[in-house]
Amino acid sequence: MLEGKVKWFNSEKGFGFIEVEGQDDVFVHFSAIQGEGFKTLEEGQAVSAEIVEGNRGPQAANVTKEA
């Protein structure tokens, strides 16, 4: 698991990027966000996630919002 913060997230398109210190930004799709209801993230929000290899490079999986 790694910790980072949301760089930006487009709720209409359902994707965005997470900033991780010392690494390239990581793509995040709404389907990777854990929880019930409408899955979205806010800019600057702290999150933790796993990194997996997607079709277009590294992407976030099992994204959870930090308190």
Rank of each mutant, 00 (worst) to 15 (best):
M1I: 13
M1P: 11
L2Q: 08
L2D: 03
L2T: 10
E3V: 15
G4A: 06
G4E: 00
K5I: 13
K5D: 00
K5N: 06
K5Q: 08
V6C: 07
V6Q: 00
V6N: 01
K7P: 00
W8N: 00
W8A: 00
W8M: 01
F9T: 00
F9S: 00
F9L: 00
F9V: 00
F9Y: 09
N10G: 02
N10I: 06
N10D: 10
N10Q: 05
N10F: 06
N10E: 00
N10P: 00
S11N: 10
S11F: 10
S11I: 10
E12D: 10
E12L: 14
E12V: 14
E12C: 15
K13F: 08
K13I: 07
K13M: 09
K13C: 10
G14V: 02
G14P: 01
G14L: 03
F15W: 14
F15M: 05
F15H: 05
F15Q: 01
F15N: 02
F15A: 00
F15G: 00
G16Q: 00
G16S: 01
G16E: 01
G16Y: 04
F17L: 05
F17V: 08
F17I: 07
I18N: 00
I18M: 04
I18E: 00
I18K: 01
I18V: 05
E19N: 08
E19C: 14
V20R: 08
V20W: 08
V20K: 05
V20F: 15
E21A: 11
E21N: 10
E21K: 12
E21L: 11
E21Y: 12
G22L: 04
G22A: 05
G22W: 05
G22I: 03
Q23C: 12
Q23K: 11
Q23F: 14
Q23G: 10
Q23N: 09
D24Y: 11
D25T: 07
D25W: 10
D25F: 08
D25P: 08
D25I: 08
V26T: 03
V26I: 12
V26Y: 04
F27L: 03
F27C: 08
V28L: 06
V28A: 02
H29M: 05
H29L: 06
H29S: 03
F30M: 06
F30N: 02
F30A: 05
F30C: 08
F30T: 03
F30E: 02
S31E: 05
S31I: 04
A32W: 07
A32G: 09
A32C: 09
A32D: 10
A32Q: 09
I33A: 02
I33C: 08
Q34A: 11
Q34I: 14
Q34Y: 09
Q34N: 13
Q34L: 14
G35A: 09
G35K: 05
E36P: 11
E36Y: 10
E36R: 10
E36V: 12
E36L: 11
G37K: 05
G37S: 07
G37C: 10
F38L: 07
F38K: 05
K39H: 05
K39S: 04
T40W: 12
T40I: 09
T40S: 10
L41H: 03
L41W: 03
L41R: 01
L41M: 05
E42M: 13
E42Q: 13
E43K: 15
E43Y: 13
E43H: 13
E43M: 14
G44T: 04
G44H: 06
G44L: 03
Q45E: 11
A46F: 14
A46D: 07
A46N: 11
A46H: 13
V47R: 01
V47M: 03
V47F: 04
S48D: 04
A49N: 02
A49C: 15
E50M: 14
E50T: 13
I51P: 03
I51D: 01
E53G: 09
E53Q: 15
E53C: 15
E53D: 10
E53N: 13
G54P: 02
G54W: 08
G54R: 08
G54S: 10
G54L: 07
N55R: 15
N55Y: 14
N55I: 14
R56I: 07
R56W: 15
R56G: 08
R56A: 08
G57L: 04
G57F: 05
G57W: 07
G57D: 02
P58F: 11
P58M: 10
P58S: 08
Q59F: 13
Q59D: 02
Q59T: 08
Q59L: 08
A60G: 05
A60D: 02
A60S: 03
A61H: 11
A61S: 10
A61F: 11
N62Y: 11
N62A: 09
V63I: 07
V63C: 05
V63M: 03
V63L: 08
T64Q: 13
T64Y: 13
K65T: 11
E66P: 11
E66K: 15
A67R: 11
A67C: 12
